[in-house]
């Protein structure tokens, strides 16, 4: 019963994706939308295969920027959260500024970054750091602050140091928030990298995009859009895998499985 449930859970999104593809195919096949504006799924796939190696070489650049930027943004975000949790003046001084920076849209700041840091990797990495920083710092800080006061007191009664309280209570308590922040972040990072490349650069999926746009090769445009979403999905999936590895206690079942019971009632 459980297995069929899981199977039907997978079949629904599959059907909806298939329906969208069919609709898309129909729109271009019957030329409801002119073909030069909306290439068919087949044309998109062909464009993808035709430019595969070129796409991969650009992807390499984009991915490198994404990884460097994300790692830096996550580290800076995490360390800031630690600092703000440890030292209240830092919290009071930094928090409003962090929120304020988030009111500036990435699209608006990206051209400036290109202007300041040139066409190489620097502006892309800086933009990604700015994008990643916020969800991490806010999530992790919330995690630190929501740690159970009674548990902290218990450890204090055992004579635990600040570091031990951090290590055994605050840090693990912030892990779920950290990972949900990271999941949002990796998808945004790819988009951020592409956006910065759009505005100026020598290589990367964004650069490829501006080039094919100028030559009105919409099939290639679609191909690169798909590549970007696939890459984002893979990164999100990787974060989930990492989360499962880092939080094994989330994987065990409780003695009474409430979720399963709900399913039975529903079915």
């Amino acid at each position: 019963m459980n297995k069929t449930g899981r199977f039907s859970n997978k079949i629904y999104p599959f059907i909806s994706i298939l329906a969208i593809l069919a609709l898309w195919e129909a729109l271009s096949f019957f030329e409801i939308v002119p073909n030069f504006m909306l290439p068919s799924p087949q044309q998109t796939v062909q464009a993808f295969i035709g430019d595969f190696w070129l796409l991969m070489s650009h992807l390499k650049v984009t991915l490198l920027e994404t990884v460097i930027g994300t790692l830096m943004g996550v580290s800076i975000g995490f360390l800031s959260a630690v600092l703000m949790d440890r030292w209240d003046p830092a919290y009071k001084a930094m928090y409003p500024i962090i929120v304020l920076t988030q009111t500036i849209p990435a699209v608006a700041i990206a051209p400036l970054l290109v202007l300041w840091f040139g066409y190489k990797m620097m502006p892309k990495v800086v933009l990604i750091v700015l994008i990643t920083f916020f969800p991490i710092v806010v999530g992790v800080l919330d995690g630190f602050r929501s740690a159970d006061k009674d548990a902290i007191n218990l450890l204090r009664s055992m004579g635990a140091s600040r570091w031990q309280i951090f290590r055994h209570i605050k840090f693990p308590n912030a892990l779920p928030n950290f990972f949900s922040g990271l999941r949002i972040t990796v998808a945004y990072s790819v988009v951020g990298a592409v956006l910065a490349e759009w505005l100026g650069g020598f290589a990367g999926l964004g650069v490829y995009m501006t080039r094919v746009k100028k030559s009105f090769a919409y099939d290639k445009m679609f191909a690169v859009i798909f590549l970007i979403s696939i890459i984002s999905l893979i990164l999100i999936w990787l974060v989930s895998v990492l989360q499962k590895k880092c939080m094994p206690w989330e994987q065990v079942d409780e003695p009474v499985r409430k979720r399963d019971r709900n399913k039975v009632v529903k079915g």
């Binding site: 159970d148 009674d150 548990a151 218990l154 204090r156 009664s157 055992m158 004579g159 055994h168 209570i169 693990p172 892990l175 939080m247 206690w249």
Partner: peptide, 19 residues
């Protein structure tokens, strides 16, 4: 001074992420 006597509450305060 802490580190001498511990206590136990109604809440078991077992950390969910530790075995």
């Amino acid at each position: 001074t802490t580190g001498h006597i511990s206590y136990m509450l109604q809440k078991d305060l077992l950390l969910p992420y530790k075995t």
